[in-house]
Write a protein that binds this DNA or RNA. Structure first.
Lengths: 348, 348
DNA sequence: TAAGACTACGTTACCGGTAAACTTGTCGCA
DNA sequence: TGCGACAAGTTTACCGGTAACGTAGTCTTA
């Protein structure tokens, strides 16, 4: 039925032969392979006339460059960058990816992605795959890596950018902010707003150490202010709307007199807001709600969510640019801080 | 300051030399290169004893395979798959990407991504980059490609999966559903619910032909029912919450007696709902609201949104699996339909 | 018991591009 | 006029795998 479309070996061989390579262009233009290579890469050492002949020949033969051969032949010629994120389904990381991709493609690099679901072992498995492609560099999310990951990175000696969290010293380069400080800042803000019985609802799928860091900073701030955290509800689930809804329900069942709840992220906070609305709990009068992350949805709610906005796209862009700068041997600062912004909102 | 970390040429050379290759393993294990290659790829033609020696030698030397060389040496050995989506920041495509990535990495393939912002020229530019890596196949979103794209795909003769829309016959393989039919179905549903003065709010950034297809199907259904569409508001913007909010405001200013509005997607519909709430417009009594896509947020609203749920992850998974099946020479059906589901909700 | 088949490897020739070294021609200048 | 500097190329030697083919032994079987 679809036999005409099946790519069999014969077709493949034919297709391969049909494709022009540097040698074919060299013959067509009457110069050497090496000259063609230099012309097409825009380097120097040839006349305008030669250049024109080569470019014309390449166009005539529909030349498609072979980056595989280039990267293989000259190790450092790779324009491949690997990036690993915790979850591809997260709205925040979608924006980070977008920032990275735009910056990289503008600079002539290609992006190979993977996700690790907050697991250091998955990250290592991904890294081993990527390294076998001899990329120019990699971007990792977070700061908790397996010993094997660190060993491998050291062994291959390529630039590494760690994004998203900045709590400890980086392997190579780092771009992001401190999750711990986000928690502290929100804790202090809630106290200033007069909140005293404060809870937390999270969903720490596997080992989301960054969400954990926010919670710890938050707890520290509350404790220092003399009003330690009243209750926490941490679900073993992905941090989405439903867990936010049910997490708040469970928390309030255990501890009905809370006057404020801090959520793992905005999605969960919106789930919590929905729960309040369905139960007639007034926000912020009866209960304050605070999120984290800065989803677009959070700013268009009837009452703007109190949250921390993370500069996702900017982080991606900065990470890509730092990586490329290092690849080009330019001077790069090891750590780039991309500040977050607490937005007051109307839910606390 | 960071000089110790700079990867200069000397370090690079050293790192390169330090890395073991097949020949080193062959020497260590006392066999030939080719035997090592076969053992490590799990093919046949050697004894268990030889195998054990090779595996041990590889482990001793910390061998990292070089897929670049493999793909280069044997054309068809590439395990690279390219994928291009309209926007990386879309929640829906995040789930599609996740489905593709999980399926591919389980099958031993790597994913190279790009985005085209609904532009056929950007898609072609991306494809030219990707093709230069000689991927095993590509996944494209949508059905509108430039002539150059189609030519190039034909020239390189590799499997292509087009996802997301199924309105015309595919280049090679296709996975998705009909956007046109989604529009028709929603139009018929709204009519059955007794709605008569129906409007549309969209945001057709660049040339989002699939959103356009939904609108056309929708208009057809309404016209056939004898109640042609009353008004449309199409913003030149990305289809997010804000445009939904303001789009509805503008539409109602022009046409205040609408009894229902169909939105480009759920994000815009939620923006519209927010507008209603802020103006005291009761939903669904005063105005019906319908969306498209099936965002998680839409199902956790105080009133569940009337919308069409798209099986995003399943599409990604099916696309990846169809591509790999074709690569392995298995029999694959050209078109895989992944049905959408209209959820009644409570906003119409 | 010799011919043939099978097992378990080894050898060789690429794949397409790049770096480095080498060649040739041209020009300025003492 | 002779010499060095430079521009504009060419030549050669790889990079690390893989496919195709070759071959030495072992096992089977008529």
């Amino acid at each position: 039925m679809s036999s005409e479309k099946v790519i069999d070996n014969i077709d493949r061989g034919a297709a391969r032969k049909a494709k022009a390579n540097l040698e074919d262009i060299a013959r067509e233009a009457g110069v050497s392979k090496m000259t063609v290579s230099r012309v097409l890469r825009g380097s120097t050492g040839f006349s305008d006339q030669t250049r024109a002949r080569v470019v014309a020949a390449a166009a005539r033969l529909d030349y498609v460059p072979n980056r595989l051969a280039a990267a293989f032949g000259a190790d450092h010629a790779s324009t491949l960058v690997g990036m690993c994120v915790p979850r591809l389904t997260s709205g925040l990381f979608g924006h980070v990816l977008d920032g990275v991709d735009r910056a990289l493609s503008r600079l002539g690099y290609q992006l190979m992605i993977g996700s690790n679901n907050h697991s250091a072992e998955d990250e290592e498995a991904w890294l081993r795959q990527i390294v076998s492609w001899r990329p120019a560099g990699v971007i990792l999310s977070g700061r908790s890596h397996s010993a094997g990951t660190v060993d491998l990175l050291r062994q291959v000696a390529m630039p590494v950018v760690e994004i998203w969290d900045l709590t400890t010293s980086p392997i190579d380069l780092a771009v992001g902010f401190s999750h711990h400080d986000c928690g502290v800042e929100m804790g202090q803000f809630l106290i200033r707003r007069g909140r005293r019985k404060i809870g937390f609802v999270g969903a720490l799928s596997r080992s989301d150490v960054m969400g954990q860091a926010r919670l710890e900073g938050f707890q520290e701030a509350l404790a220092r202010a003399g009003h330690p955290i009243a209750a926490t509800e941490v679900l073993q689930d992905s941090p989405g709307f439903y867990p936010g809804y049910y997490g708040l329900e469970m928390l309030l069942a255990r501890c009905p007199d809370l006057d404020c709840v801090y959520f793992h992220n905005d999605e969960m906070a919106i789930g919590g807001l929905t729960y309040c609305q369905s139960r007639g709990i007034r926000v912020p009068e009866d209960l304050g709600i605070a999120g984290w992350g800065g989803m677009e949805a959070a700013s268009v709610l009837p009452k703007r969510l109190t949250t921390t906005i993370v500069p996702t796209t900017a982080i991606g862009k900065a990470a890509a640019e730092a990586l490329v700068a290092r690849l080009k041997g330019e001077d790069v600062q090891d750590v780039t801080v991309t500040p977050t912004r607490l937005v007051t909102g109307e839910t606390v």
